[in-house]
Design a protein around this nucleic acid. Structure first.
Lengths: 113, 113
DNA sequence: GTCTATATGTAGACTCCCTATTTATTGAGG
DNA sequence: CCTCAATAAATAGGGAGTCTACATATAGAC
């Protein structure tokens, strides 16, 4: 997977993966890998700064915890983050529709257009 | 459309739009807009450098022409570019599958997994 | 004592997309 | 003649976010 393709979609991925239950960074990376069947292997240098950014934006709420002697920062989706995720899902749909319509080998626009 | 989402997908868009017939930069921008029903309005500062980059990479062959007193640089898809486009289409499919599987509100992996 | 897995974080490089601007021609309208 | 809009190409500089590489630390296996 070309690194740059992910750009602009990290927020959606991170918000989505903590939707059901709060997770810490390391677990988020694993969840991303599992949910995508190995396709998404996002490095720590991408995830940790992105989580901080989303926390600053108010979309995630982070909290320190200790489990098995190891410190963890667990991130929970805020109400604001949940609204943002809804927007991201909508934007994703528009995005894939737009790119898909151009990449479609048949070369046409919408059938009813 | 958030500008950053396009990042890493410009090559696929540009190669795809000149697949049928050679086009010049200005026409490429219009084709992108038409094919996507207005969703993709890519600025000249993005397209012209990208076309040069793809030409340097050997995926496009540019040639100067004059039509109605105006100079145009028309770009044609090379064999190498056609192969690259096939790869881009495949990558696009993997990409949407991966992101989609994470963004899917049901939160599951593949149904048979 | 070494290795692996777990867990978080930063510095700096790098890509490349966007904004803003420049240059030039054609044709319409006044 | 002048202005405006559409057509056509290009560059400089800014900027945001992802990646590579590295640093730090604990726990458990061997």
């Amino acid at each position: 997977m070309n690194p740059d393709t992910l750009r602009g979609h990290m927020d959606a991925l991170l918000l989505s993966v903590v939707e059901r239950e709060p997770l810490h960074g390391y677990a988020i990376i694993e969840a991303l890998r599992e949910r995508s069947d190995g396709a998404l292997d996002v490095p720590t240098g991408t995830v940790y700064p992105a989580l901080r950014r989303l926390e600053r934006a108010g979309y995630l709420a982070g909290e320190w915890a200790v489990a098995g002697g190891r410190k963890r920062r667990t991130y929970r989706l805020t109400d604001s983050g949940r609204a943002a995720l809804t927007g991201e899902r909508s934007a994703w749909k528009s995005f894939t529709t737009a790119i898909g319509s151009v990449l479609d080998p048949s070369g046409g626009r919408s059938p009813s257009g």
